[in-house]
Amino acid sequence: MTYNFAFLDEDTKRMLRRALLKAVAIPGYQVPFGSREMPLPYGWGTGGIQVTAALLGPDDVLKVIDQGADDTTNAVNIRRFFHRVAGVATTEHTAEATLIQTRHRIPETSLREDQILVFQVPEPEPLRTLEPREAETRTLHALADYGLMHVKLYEDIAQYGHIATSYDYPVLVDGRFLTSPSPIPKFDNPKLDRSPALMLFGAGREKRLYAIPPYTSVESLAFDDHPFEIQRWEQQCELCGSGESYLDEVVVDDRGTRMFVCSDTDFCSGHRMEAQA
């Protein structure tokens, strides 16, 4: 059995492409689209996969990461899927990729203007946990009424003494739309601001896609007396020694021994190669 190039039929690709162009034209706004059933379940990156399928051409080099890693189940499966249905070249090296699909991280290596980053998004609506009704959140976006989110962040400060949100930290795109950066750690939020690379977001189950164009202001919400801060670690990566990357805490035996390692596997191995050279 053969598939159309990149799995989706051409009508679906055109629908996605029209939605993507509107998403880029209205930074941070969630464009509804007709999400298709994909050969893996909702919640496994169907939104990102549909966006990637609409973009992909035979000359692309695709990288897929899951929590920064190229070698986890979700990343391996999606990479293999596109290799099979589009025959595209794949890579684990950030610098070699033209298209990077990601779940929950932005690579540590700076992206370039000729690269596109596609995020898998479980919940595109940043206000959803505060307001369950879609009609109401649409109205709040129309009015740019984001008081609810400021109250939520203030309640964090009142309760914990600091803003306790550590991932999916809400951002304001181009000073207008409150946007979910997808559940990336807030460590990655500064990489969204004025990025040279175009960033596209797809939520398959929720049937929404949105975009952050290059060189666009992306501000993480904060207060004057509680400025936005990213995570920091006392540890360094135990494999490559990096003190700048985002670290995962890994339990390595059944006695509770832990080690801290880079979440970005390509960055980590690159750093180790450099050290050896």
Binding site: F5, E10, R14, R17, L20, L21, V24, G57, L198, P214
Partner: peptide, 16 residues
């Protein structure tokens, strides 16, 4: 398939 894909990528970059 391929002509519209390659044109779309330029349109997307043009809009971005």
């Amino acid at each position: 398939v391929f002509d519209s894909q390659s044109n779309f990528r330029e349109l997307l970059q043009a809009m971005a």
